Amino acid sequence: MVRPISESKNMKITAAVVRTAGAPFTIEALELESPRADEVLVRIVATGLCHTDLVVRDQLLPTPLPAVLGHEGSGVIEAVGADVHDLAPGDHVVLGFAACRECQPCVAGEPSYCAHFAGLNFGGSRPDGSKALADVDGAVSSHFFGQSSFASHALVAAKNVVKVATSAPLALLGPLGCGIMTGAGTVLNTLDVGPQDVVLVSGGGPVGLSGVMAAAAAGAQTIILVDPLASRRDFALTLGATHVVDPTAGAVEGQVRAIVPGGATRILETSGNMTAIEQAVAVLGSRGKLAMVGVPKALDATVTVAALPLVSLGASICGVTEGDADPRTFIPRLIALYEEGRFPFDRMITEYPIAQINQAVEDQYAGRCVKAVLTM
């Protein structure tokens, strides 16, 4: 028998819930369990709104509904489980994606390729199948990306929490845990951009613009952004891009090669659009490398590329998850770059109260904001 929320001993929280595919988020009262031995209870200060949240809302990627999504959370620890000794109430934290920290990729320092990544991040529950959230009718999917941070509070495995200095701007830091980390990490880790590189970024959303800033921080002298929105192109020029290309104004290859006849040595493709990927492949230069991070609109989406140019140029194409980054080391690196004035990601952010989550979604889709952050 389900107990009414008013009679439950579980903690009462407020959360944005998605109940059916593609439906608006609804702000609801839910119950949240107490932290287990390996978990911490975090009072969420702010959470970034990421494209992945929306493709899961629309069920292009599956998480059992109803669910509380949100996976770019930052906040303050309020309680810790019995086995947690390196974190304490009052600590300021950024919440990373979930990883087991025990499999071969995790032990090798590659937690974004954890052998259990899909289940831990999209399963809607703890590894044992239990759900930490409930409404008056029963269980609600929790632990999305190990956190479900579209809420006033979240339970998180301690091993996936990154402690930050209390002097850091906590309300801004959540997106460092996924979208911003993905763009910057792909540039700095996967592509290993340096001053000698010609960098092309396909897509001027928060992931792409994070890549632009990271390329500038790495000293790249030529950084080209491709995006159809004039506002995004103009903004990119203020963040470090040296050139911009409008894909609606003519063939991308021709426009790019007019800037750099030899093509790009490093390409970050963020759109997940098959045509855009093929256009990016066409401008790969000698020994060039293209990294794809965008989620396509269809799980069976395919790209057609000519094999011979890849062979003759010695070029390569790869996919990347979470910027090939370990949040525990990479988030502090990004915060340090920000504090040095070399990674001004805060300029992308527009804050919305959690009650305006659907407006934030609409504004982000329409390009009225670059990166929406929901404050609690």
Rank of each mutant, 00 (worst) to 15 (best):
G250Q: 03
N160T: 03
R333F: 03
H243N: 09
F25H: 08
A301Q: 13
T238K: 13
F330I: 00
A37I: 13
A372F: 08
T375F: 10
S74D: 10
L239G: 05
D135V: 07
V226Q: 02
A301G: 06
L32S: 03
V45Y: 01
V84L: 04
R126S: 07
V42N: 03
R287K: 15
D326R: 09
I180Q: 04
A315P: 10
K163W: 10
T321F: 15
L155I: 06
E339W: 05
A301C: 08
S149H: 10
D128M: 03
G146H: 12
V17W: 06
V207P: 11
N10V: 11
A79L: 09
D300E: 11
F343I: 05
V311A: 12
R43D: 09
R57N: 12
Q147F: 09
A218R: 06
Y113P: 00
V198M: 11
C100L: 05
I259D: 14
G96E: 07
L32A: 03
A139H: 13
E253N: 10
A67E: 09
L299Q: 14
G262T: 09
I223R: 04
A216T: 08
E269T: 08
H116K: 13
A168R: 04
A168Y: 05
I77D: 11
E102S: 13
T275L: 15
A171D: 15
K159C: 09
A115Y: 13
P35Q: 12
P228K: 01
P105V: 09
F145R: 01
Q196A: 15
E7Y: 03
D227M: 06
T265G: 14
L60S: 09
